[in-house]
Nucleic acid binder design. Structure first.
Lengths: 256, 256
DNA sequence: GCATCCATGTGAACAGTGTTCATAGAACCC
DNA sequence: GGGTTCTATGAACACTGTTCACATGGATGC
């Protein structure tokens, strides 16, 4: 139709969208656009129309590549552990390796706004995520955990990961909408609320109120991780390292 | 206007909605209706219009009593521990008492279809739920847990409760929509899927596949609970009962 | 070179959603 | 009886996910 080497005559109106610029729509591009919308507008406003608009395309075009919104969310969930390296299970270090796994998961969940809500209600049984589950189980096996414990340990760890980051991002979201002040402001608000409770009816809540402002989320996450690991280690059938028998019964010192 | 003791004359047509029958709309009635809709139609179809229809009322009528849908969901969440009794903390039995707390929570979450999804994303810091949180903390204190551990233990336990039941009801929902066969059918499907994985790349997943059909959800929940309790107990500063020192370091036998 | 085909993107439509608001109505107090 | 207050109504707005007949454009076959 148009000669590439010829200058376009002035009367010929330029096409609205120049042909060569028009990169074809793919699942990957849709997922990328969905992340852009998610990070900018949050989970509530993540709609098929917004994703389409981000790509400069009409809604129904998406449905050629994606069956429905749920499938798109699943594709997003599938990228959770992309480029997360999987270390060889080391029986002497399995506890730290499991912790690293959980830390990487949390980091990825916090990397995108509301990503925890996307992951919630999904199960890592896709070809992309199964290898990571397998690797986690290998760590448990290296630690000498009996099979039934292995079978529940994965759930336990991932529900903690997701639940904890979910709560984190919930507060972040709540802070975002009450635009006033900084993160410290809202934390003071929370602490003030707990401190204002009648101490005779809520002695423990009041006494813990201070901790909620003193301790960082990182510290709280690590502590919960330690609790889980200790519980798991107490089930280890054999010492996780030949040279250090019984270590799983006497874990690291409590971080009081 | 109308005399209560007089018989109604035959020419007086009855009102379309007899006046005394018309019970006034209240928050409680709205919440009850919402649960009816939730149990019948599930979380996805729980809409303000459906709730209104259940009450024989128009949508906008609800907004007189409830600010928005989120608030309605929060009211539903608030009923989670209604009529759950709170036992006095017994230092000798704190582990069982904590387990009972979690069991009650799971039972309540499973009592209504998709209730786990409603609870997800809410935080038990309402006047109705705070007493239960306080009681849980009292159990931890009775167990001699240091304050920082107490502060995270509640989150750990409730994320496990919610995450576990969430997964349970997810499978239940997936089973509901693929109407074919019984619960055993879908469990066989899952097991077949895991067994069909290449054993050289997924040795641990394949080896665990059998457990997923052999073990009941109840058993798996209890095992996860044990793991958490053991981890918590390992932080106890003093024996939870003067007469039984060291029990927290040697919990019950592993259920292998 | 031409015709055909197929997949990709279009625009309109459908059925539904949460939420708001002026209006009608009942109930209550003075 | 009159007036005020509160509740329920119906219509409307701006969205949502999803479907479908239609155009369009690039590759393929002849």
């Amino acid at each position: 139709m148009s000669q590439p080497d010829m200058p376009t005559p002035p009367w010929e109106r330029p096409r609205k969208r120049p042909a060569p610029t028009r990169v074809p729509l793919t699942r990957d591009r849709i997922v990328d656009a969905a992340f852009v919308v998610l990070d900018r507008d949050g989970y509530e406003r993540l709609s098929m129309r917004q994703v389409a608009a981000e790509l400069g395309v009409v809604v129904s075009a998406l449905y050629v590549h994606v069956n429905n919104k749920d499938e798109l969310l699943e594709l997003m969930y599938n990228t959770l552990f992309d480029d997360v390296e999987l270390p060889e299970p080391d029986p002497a270090n399995w506890q730290d390796q499991v912790k690293d796994f959980a830390r990487a998961g949390r980091r990825r969940l916090l990397a995108h706004r509301d990503m925890a809500r996307v992951s919630m209600g999904h199960v890592p049984f896709t070809p992309e995520l199964l290898p990571h589950v397998e690797k986690l189980l290998a760590l448990f096996r290296a630690g000498g955990l009996p099979a039934p414990v292995m079978a529940i340990a994965g759930d336990l760890l991932s529900t903690y990961m997701e639940g904890f980051t979910m709560e984190e991002s919930m507060w972040a979201e709540r802070y975002r909408e009450m635009d006033a002040g900084s993160w410290e402001t809202i934390r003071d608000e929370i602490q003030k609320y707990f401190s204002s409770l009648p101490p005779d009816r809520f002695p423990n809540l009041v006494s813990i109120a201070e901790l909620m402002v003193d301790e960082s989320n990182d510290y709280r996450f690590e502590l919960g991780l330690d609790i889980i690991i200790r519980g798991l280690a107490s089930y280890a059938e054999k010492p996780e390292h030949p040279g250090h028998p019984g270590q799983q019964e006497k874990p690291a010192e409590p971080q009081t």
